[in-house]
Nucleic acid binder design. Sequence first.
RNA 1: GGGCCCGUAGCUCAAUUGGAUAGAGCAUCAGCCUUCUAAGCUGAGGGUUACGCGUUCGAUUCGCGUCGGGCCUACCA
Length: 543
Amino acid sequence: MNQYLTERVAAALRSAGVDNAPSPSFEKPRQAEHGDLTTTIALTAAKLAKIPPRQLAQKIVENLHLDTSLVEKVEIAGPGFINFHFSIEFFKTSLGEILRADKNFGKHDIAKGKPTQVEFVSANPTGPLTVGHGRGAVYGDTISRLLEWTGHNVTREYYFNNAGRQMRVLGDSVRLRYLQELGDAIEFPEDYYQGEYIRDIARGLVERHGDSLRNEPAEGMFKQQAETEIFDDIKKSLKRLGVVHEVFSNENELYETGKVTEVIEELRAKNLAYDLEGAVWFKATQFGSEKDKVIVKSTGEPTYRLPDIAYHREKLNRGFELVIDVLGADHIATYPDVLAGLTALGYDSSKIKVLIHQFVTIIQNNEVVKMSTRKANFVTLDELMDEVGADVVRYFFIMRSVDSHLNFDLGLAKKQSDENPVYYLQYAHARIASIIRHAEDIGVDRNIPANLSLLSTSEELAVMKKLLEFPGMVESCAATFEPHRLADYLQDVAGVFHRFYHEHRVVTEDLPLTAARMSLCLATKIVLGNGFEILGITAPERM
RNA sequence: GGGCCCGUAGCUCAAUUGGAUAGAGCAUCAGCCUUCUAAGCUGAGGGUUACGCGUUCGAUUCGCGUCGGGCCUACCA
């Protein structure tokens, strides 16, 4: 419909003698009285055409020649809006399309299988995933699902740094706990990992190896065991949340395969790296940075930039045409250097899209909780899921714009779980399932052809119109990486359905009307179900 | 000092990317179950969109400035 109107209006503009106008765009008016689609082309093109907006609108409308079986009415309003009202016939046809498309309704092939990588979570395995990690996990996964729905071939990837100081401290934390378990009187440093899980790992080592590891270095068995066990837990938590990564990669591999040194050598060869005071510097100033950046410290240890550049280069070498990094706001300053490094190496850094999400402030007992894995001061994702379930957790993290610094009140989330907005959505779905069961119980055949013209009340039309917005929502949410708008939209869908349900009985003795309303219910169930699929929440048949 | 994000109803947040009368949930108040699920529906109150200039037919949205909050700003990751 959008495309059809775009063509007709563009043609009408030409007939009206306006040749250089921009392509008209359409949007759904906020108010129902303003029709089903509206364009502001007369307002924006008025200056170019040197005609007052309303007059131009008049000329456009005169030259439209629309198919009246699709568009019932066209009117000019306000300063020069052109409003289009669709016919019942159009809605009927569209409803049929929803039912036919079923689980595919809303899917697009815009990206045509474009190889796309989404990297997210990427927390180092130093402890369990906390509520603080939740937003990135849910956001990254939902973006992945949206991209799949728009035809991307998505690889979900988890990258972690296991070569740095953090992991050394982790290994040594386990080593010291191990020695304590053996009975040694050893002081445990304050800035080591305080969590009970470190003791658990140490105890496991004692059980399997006795005291034979007494002289092992922290970097070996201890670090390795910690990484393995903690990672298992992280993967379990993610799976509970509905998040599954296809690929895990890490920093050590980049060193072992020589990818990191390759970067230095190539930069040197291009004269984009130099030595100063014992350190190696990257000429970031040649790529818009204010100052050059150190990539290898005078101690010989690389800064985080270097493996990050090597890693992103690997991503592009692996053939991804779109690479998405989902990062927390604390990493905002790191990626310009990475992009500059890739540009320096001759790669097209525009293929990399960095999505930043703001932090969630966790509030417990009216106090802000400062999470610290080191100090073992955190609320884990598992604990939260134990309390409220994965659906609520996912929905909480996705319902707000990633730009918002939202407050997450743990007490409120738990206490009000009955009134959580996610139940409003799921309730609509369960309600429809219940209607269908009822209809089947009393022998209504859901396959009898429905005469959709019987749907004529304002509540029925409102549902139809809302359902038809779904494909456009999927497309625009994917294009702007804003899944929260899909959550908002689904609230609307549930809302119009609840209102329809309240006003009209679906299953009655009037069989033709029953069939038509059943179709409306089935279509609503499809849209809700497909939306839930994208958000990663369950679609309950009963509640 | 510089950079990024934010400031909208009592609280938590939306607002179709510059459109027409700024909307939801929670909370408060008043109604609706003999009928397919009341985890629902209807109604009421609640706003100088932090503040000030500017850009234009039109600004919550764009620009500049002020105030306030969060996060960055190392040869830490």
